[in-house]
C-alpha cells in the first residue's frame, strides 16, 4: 500500500496534450518516488475558474464544484481531494466555504446535484499539492530521495497569486511566502531569495483579453528574475507557467527585449533531483528550454553509497 493516498483533481489544463500536460507528467513522477497514490476523481469536471462569472451564475458555479466533491466523497471516501492547479484549488475551496457556511446555498446545490444522482456532504477537504508536500511530508522528508542535487542552478521562485491568496499555505505570509525557496533548497538548488516579483500577478485569464496590460506584468516578472541572476523561474501554478513562458516572444517583438527565461514547475525540479529523466520530468514540454535542468536530468545518477 502506498504511503499516502489522495483523490486527485488534475483540472482541465493538466490533461493529455493540454497546456500543462508536463505538470501532470512531472507530478506523477514526483509522487511515484514519494510513494503517493493519486487516484483521479472519476469523471471530474471544470471548476469554472475565476473568469466564468459573467456567464455562470453563483449557484451554477457552486454546483460545478459541488459535483467534484460529491464524486470524490462517493468514489474515494475518506481521501483528501488534492489539486495541482491553483485556480482549481481556489475555485473548489471557495465553493466549499460557501457550501459549508450557507445552509440555503447548500440545500440549493444539493437539489441541483440530485439531477445528476449526487449529493454534497461536506466531508472532504480540498488541498493544493504543495500543502500535501509541506504538511504531510515536510522538507526533511522531501529531501531524503534526492540523488541529484540541483547544484549550480539559481531559481526565481514565482509563487504568483492564487496558490498564495486568499488562502495561501499555512504559516506563510501573503507578501513574502518562503515555501518555494525552501523547496528549491531542499532539492539542492539555489533560491533567488531577493526576487521581488514573487507574488506579482501575471494577468491570469486577462492574458487572453487584455494582452498588452498582462504582458507588461509578465515583462516585470521575467526581468526581475534576470536582475537576480536566476537561471530559470519555478512556479506552482499552471496558468502562471503558461503565461510567463509563452508570451516572452511576443514581449520581445513589442519591446525589443531578448527575454528567454525558462519557466518550470516545482514538481519538475523534484523529479529531476529524485533521478527522473527529461521525459519523466516533462522537460520536453517547454517552448523556452530549461537547459541547465535538462543537463542534470540527462546525467546518469551517481551510484548509491
Amino acid at each position: 500500500m502506498a504511503k499516502k493516498e489522495y483523490a486527485f483533481y488534475p483540472g482541465c489544463s493538466s490533461q493529455l496534450k493540454a497546456s500543462a500536460a508536463n505538470y501532470l507528467v512531472s507530478t506523477s513522477s514526483m509522487c511515484k518516488t514519494l510513494d503517493i497514490k493519486l487516484t483521479p476523481i472519476p469523471d471530474w469536471n471544470c471548476c469554472g475558474a475565476s473568469i466564468s462569472y459573467a456567464g455562470g451564475s453563483e449557484l451554477s458555479r457552486l454546483v460545478l464544484n459541488a459535483r467534484n466533491f460529491a464524486l470524490s466523497e462517493t468514489h474515494l471516501p475518506g481521501q483528501d481531494m488534492v489539486a495541482t492547479c491553483a485556480a482549481c484549488w481556489l475555485g473548489a475551496r471557495e465553493s466549499k466555504e460557501k457550501l459549508d457556511t450557507n445552509a440555503q446555498l447548500r440545500a440549493d446545490a444539493n437539489e441541483a446535484l440530485k439531477e445528476a444522482g449526487l449529493q454534497y456532504q461536506g466531508k472532504t477537504p480540498v488541498r493544493h499539492m504543495v500543502e500535501v508536500l509541506i504538511e504531510d511530508f515536510g522538507y526533511a522528508e522531501l529531501g531524503k530521495p534526492v540523488v541529484k542535487p540541483l547544484e549550480g542552478i539559481k531559481f526565481a521562485g514565482y509563487v504568483g497569486c492564487q496558490t498564495n491568496r486568499p488562502f495561501g499555505i499555512a504559516g506563510e505570509s501573503f507578501e513574502n511566502p518562503l515555501y518555494l525557496d525552501k523547496l528549491v533548497e531542499t532539492v539542492g538548488g539555489e533560491a533567488a531569495t531577493q526576487y521581488e516579483q514573487k507574488v506579482t500577478c501575471c494577468g491570469g485569464a486577462l492574458a487572453f483579453s487584455e494582452t498588452e496590460k498582462s504582458q507588461k506584468q509578465i515583462k516585470d516578472i521575467v526581468e526581475s528574475a534576470y536582475d537576480q541572476k536566476a537561471d530559470m523561474i519555478v512556479t506552482p501554478c499552471p496558468l502562471c507557467q503558461a503565461n510567463v513562458e509563452v508570451y516572452q516572444s511576443e514581449i520581445n517583438k513589442k519591446y525589443g527585449t531578448k527575454l528567454a527565461m525558462p519557466v518550470t514547475y516545482y514538481s519538475q525540479l523534484m523529479t529531476v533531483a529524485y533521478g527522473g529523466s527529461t521525459k519523466e520530468a516533462g522537460l520536453d514540454g517547454h517552448i523556452i528550454q530549461p537547459t541547465k535542468l535538462q543537463e542534470i536530468a540527462d546525467k546518469p545518477a551517481p551510484a548509491k553509497k
Binding site: 482541465c12 489544463s13 490533461q15 493540454a18 497546456s19 469523471d43 469536471n45 471544470c46 469554472g48 475558474a49 473568469i51 466564468s52 462569472y53 459573467a54 456567464g55 455562470g56 451554477s60 460545478l64 485569464a205 486577462l206 487572453f208 483579453s209 487584455e210
Partner: peptide, 26 residues
C-alpha cells in the same frame, strides 16, 4: 456592460466552453 469588452467576451466564452462537455477545450 460596455458593448466592446474583451474580458466580458472571454468570460462568456469560457463558461459556454467549459459547460458544453464539462471540461475546457483550450
Amino acid at each position: 456592460a460596455p458593448k466592446i469588452q474583451p474580458t466580458r467576451d472571454f468570460s462568456l466564452q469560457f463558461w459556454k466552453n467549459c459547460t458544453r462537455t464539462g471540461r475546457v477545450n483550450e
